[in-house]
Every structure is written in C-alpha cells, then in structure tokens.
C-alpha cells in the first residue's frame, strides 16, 4: 500500500508540513518495504483557492491509500473520503522517517472528520 506524507520541501529527508492543500511537497512511501518511492512538488502551493481539492485529487490519482498531515480542510477531507483514502494526524514538523515509522507502527491517530465545516456546499457530495 502507498501512503503520502505532506512535507515542507521536495526531498526525502524533509520535515512534515502541517498544512495539507498547500504543503510544499509530498513524500510517497510503500508501507510494505518502508521505502520512499517518490517525492513530488505540490503544484497547488500558490493556488488562490481550491488547493485542498486539487491536492487531494492529485494524491488520489497517484493511487495512495493513506495520507499523513497536520490538518485537513473540509474540501480535501471530502475528496479523500470519496476516493477511499484515510487520513492520519501528526503534529509539528517531525522528520519524515520518524513519521513513516510511527505510521507503520500504528501509532498515528486517524483524522475522523474534517476540521471545519468548510465553505458551504451545494450538495454535490
């Protein structure tokens, strides 16, 4: 299974970025081998709006099954949910390898619901 960690910079030894939609980059890890298989720049860092939607969409289409981040807005949460991706919480700016280890050890708490009510939806979900 692949999981993604939001990170500050596009490098394997970066630190966790507590924001999701506008995180600097993502590290994608294979949970079976524990290996980092890819680091990707987040193209949505400067998006005026909808960064949560676009970033969640990007990760969904990468085939990840779990996401680890510091906070998740309602738009991103809804997209991840629709794509069957689970989100897990990690605070602060911890090192990526530590976050990955904690996740594999089952130490991270799932984000059960979006942090906010979000902008009003017109019922498309």
């Amino acid at each position: 299974m692949l999981f993604a960690i939001s990170v500050l910079e596009n490098k394997p030894d970066s630190n966790l970025d507590p924001t999701f939609g506008r995180a600097g980059a993502f590290v994608i890890v294979d949970s079976d081998s524990g290996e980092i298989i890819e680091t990707i720049n987040n193209p949505n860092v400067n998006a005026a709006g909808g960064a949560g939607y676009a970033t969640a969409q990007m990760l969904a289409n990468k085939g990840v099954k779990a996401v680890i981040t510091g906070s998740l807005g309602p738009n991103a949460y809804n997209v991840l949910n629709a794509a069957g991706i689970k989100a897990y919480y990690n605070s602060g700016y911890s090192a990526v390898d530590q976050v990955a280890k904690d996740f594999s050890a089952g130490k991270l708490k799932p984000i059960e619901q979006s942090l906010g009510r979000g902008r009003r939806h017109s019922g498309n979900f």
């Binding site: 506008r22 860092v45 400067n46 998006a47 005026a48």
Partner: peptide
Amino acid sequence: NSGKMVMHLRQKGKDEAL
C-alpha cells in the same frame, strides 16, 4: 483581487520564515 497574489505573498513569507 482574486487572492492569488495574497497566496503568493504568504508563500514567500512562509519560505522566508522557515
């Protein structure tokens, strides 16, 4: 004023703060 420039400034500020 779409907010794009605001996001750009904030990103620059965040980079500098880090």
